[in-house]
Design a protein around this nucleic acid. Structure first.
Lengths: 225, 225
DNA sequence: CCAAAAGTGTTAGGATTACACCCATGG
DNA sequence: CCATGGGTGTAATCCTAACACTTTTGG
């Protein structure tokens, strides 16, 4: 029998707060890399699916509720874990940090959001995994409306615009962006709001996911340049 | 210790011949699914990378030389292998079937090309994996020039055009396609050819991969609609 | 000389970009 | 009444899509 290969999952969980992309990390309380920050994750149990493993680990380690989940990539270089051969299937998740208690520390683990602008050093090859996930997020934002999973259910157009600007890291023309996005017909208008800010209140929009799915079936293409 | 999860790789190897997309399959000579057709692949050894495992399996089972390889997706549903829990990292490969002996049967395995239009029943969940790979290929053809890996080094424009037509399964305007593709500046012109066909001989082109990489670095975007 | 495939340019319509002023509210 | 952010239209440009005839060769 060959030396065993262990299978794990890791989750790159993005949130959006303070007009910045945030990443959810846990502090490891066991070796290797004890005390360092790492992606939530762990070994896959023998009878559970990969997605179930991700969800279980997130529940155990962070108590979080996921809006969007997709498989990212499988990292399997020998040596990426200094002790054993561990192959890890990385997942990519989007959540709205407002929808639950900010990183309730369950288990023994300490869970926290970090701005993607100021990440700490990460255990294993997790920095590489995060880099890969950011690329995926940036790319996907332009051809699927997944960014909406990072916002509140009802949001201002300016929120959406700032989200795109901060993640894609470039200026976006407000008028053209709104025209384009609205032209897809996947947002519905709600009432109005003042909320915390000064200035004129803005319209609240809501993502119509069923509409989007229906259009997608019909071959409709979402695209933001 | 939990029941062991086994890790495997599978390769979806596409070729192009007779103006059709082809898929490389092997006939299994051990249970389960003995005698049925399946993707080349097998268990990952404890010290090899995933890519090395794919290349080793392809060498052992088919004697093939790969032009393009990328990770496709990891399939890990419990029950996908009726005997053990096997998680398989699927890879996606493009080859030119002219570049080596047509599926030399090494090992005990029988390896063959099948037109993607007429695939046999496949073992395990391999039909699903192939379906996923075809989607990836179709999508990727439109935003990366990977189709060139399926052709001879020197090829006619009409070959490229037919390749796109057959894989995307729609008519393409010959003039617009040529204009667009040439505008990228990633093809270089060679001499002329008659080859086997009737009619006026056409110019042979060659993919300038270095040029493409250089442009890509600079933020250039390849796109065929 | 005929059949087969290669090669080539123009135009209309649609999409994208660039751009600046007025409006509604809170303090 | 002022500061802040929300809301809106038009014109120039670029890109895409549609479209047909001529050229070169082999048989």
């Amino acid at each position: 029998m060959p030396a065993q290969i262990r299978l794990a999952v890791d989750a790159v969980v993005f949130g959006y707060a303070d007009q910045q992309l945030q990443l959810l990390l846990i502090r490891r309380n066991i070796p290797p890399f004890e005390g360092e920050w790492a992606l939530p994750g762990g070994q896959v149990l023998s009878e559970e699916s990969l997605e179930a493993a991700v969800e279980r680990e997130l529940r155990e380690e962070t108590g979080i509720g996921i809006n969007y989940l997709e498989q990212l990539y499988t990292f399997g270089q020998p040596g990426r874990d200094p002790r054993n051969r561990v192959v890890s299937v990385a997942y990519f998740a989007l959540v709205n940090p407002n929808q639950f208690e900010l990183a309730a520390a369950t288990d023994a683990a300490d869970a926290r959001w970090f701005s993607c602008q100021k990440l700490p050093a990460l255990a294993f090859d997790h920095a590489q995994i995060v880099e890969y996930a950011q690329q995926r997020l940036r790319a996907k934002l332009t051809y699927e409306p997944i960014g909406l999973n990072l916002l509140d259910q009802d949001f201002l157009f300016s929120d959406l615009e700032k989200l795109y600007e901060s993640i894609l890291n470039r200026k976006i023309d407000r008028r053209n962006f709104r025209k384009k996005f609205l032209s897809f017909g996947i947002l519905t208008e709600t009432t109005r709001v003042h909320s915390g800010h000064k200035g004129r209140p803005g319209t609240l929009f809501r993502f119509d996911e069923d509409k989007y799915k229906a259009l997608k079936e019909k071959g409709f293409l979402f695209e933001i340049k």
